[in-house]
């Protein structure tokens, strides 16, 4: 169970609070999509929940325990993240990357036991990264690298999985496949999956619940249906050029575009 208790996230500098006073919860097995435009605070919120950034106020609790004050080793056994940052790592191979996910569970040498191997094999199988296990991580394409990092997060067997913009480099069939796979994993393993995405169509079709951030620091939560009908999605994303259509559940080119079509 993930509980956010009047959580305020942001920075202790001029940027200040990004999203304030969030109160909500997610149950094991929930597949939650976090939607919002660039700069709306999705990453800040996710990093704060993951315990990688301190909250300005309030707290995020996982199974009743404050994530920020958990021992780092405990937190690492319960929360896995996939982030957008890329780094160069000399000589790091794909199987190394995935095996590193088991570090919170291994002894001082980092040697893998039987259950570690099982977790790794499972993660490799569901993400389909088997063909490039022996390749250098830095040699992979962006899409392949995303898959590997997702496999790594799954191999960490977390209670809560936080994935930031993971579908950005994937083609449409891969996006559908990965997001559906994550939803199935969430249900099967009773994990909470928090995923931020710019893929509105797909998120609205797959999510159990949507957390919507608008540009003004506003925050709304609901099922995809509730949020489309209430106009919250339109409120967060509509511009002069595009408009969300609650009836069709997708975006349409706005007045200018429609006008062109009529003339033709």
């Amino acid at each position: 169970m993930l509980d956010l208790q009047s959580l305020t996230v942001g920075y202790r500098n001029a940027r200040g609070a990004v999203v304030s006073d969030i109160d909500l919860s997610a149950a094991p097995g929930d597949f939650v999509c976090i939607l919002g435009r660039n700069g709306s605070g999705k990453s800040t919120l996710m990093r704060t929940i993951a315990g990688l950034q301190t909250a300005l106020d309030g707290a995020a609790l996982l199974d009743g325990e404050d994530i920020a004050s958990m021992r780092p080793a405990t937190r690492a056994r319960r929360i896995a993240v996939v982030l957008t940052e890329r780094q160069f790592n000399p000589g790091l191979r794909v199987d190394d990357v995935i095996a590193l996910a088991r570090q919170p569970f291994t002894g001082w040498q980092g040697g893998l036991a039987e259950d570690d191997r099982v977790a790794i094999t499972d993660a490799v199988a569901v993400t389909g990264v088997e063909p490039f296990l022996r390749r250098f991580f830095s040699d992979l394409s962006d899409g392949e690298r995303q898959r590997v990092m997702i496999a790594r997060a799954l191999a960490q067997t977390p209670h809560l999985m936080i994935l930031d913009e993971i579908t950005a480099f994937l083609d449409l069939p891969s996006r559908v496949e990965i997001m559906a796979m994550l939803r199935d994993q969430a249900r099967e393993k009773d994990q909470i999956v928090l995923l931020s995405s710019h893929d509105l169509d797909l998120s609205l079709q797959l999510a159990d619940s949507v957390w919507l951030l608008d540009d003004a620091g506003g925050f709304s939560v609901g099922t995809p249906d509730e949020l489309s009908r209430s106009g919250a999605i339109g409120g967060a994303f509509d511009t002069g050029a595009i408009r969300f259509s609650p009836e069709r559940g997708r975006f349409e080119i706005g007045a200018a575009g429609v006008g062109c079509r009529r003339e033709a």
Binding site: A50, L52, R71, P72, A73, T74, R75, A76, R77, I79, A80, V81, L83, E85, R86, Q87, N89, L92, D96, V97, L100, A101, Q103, P104, Q156
Partner: peptide, 13 residues
């Protein structure tokens, strides 16, 4: 685990 970068290393405890 620092080979994955600082943030991932922190996420691994």
């Amino acid at each position: 685990s620092l080979l994955l970068g600082e943030t991932y290393a922190r996420s691994l405890g």
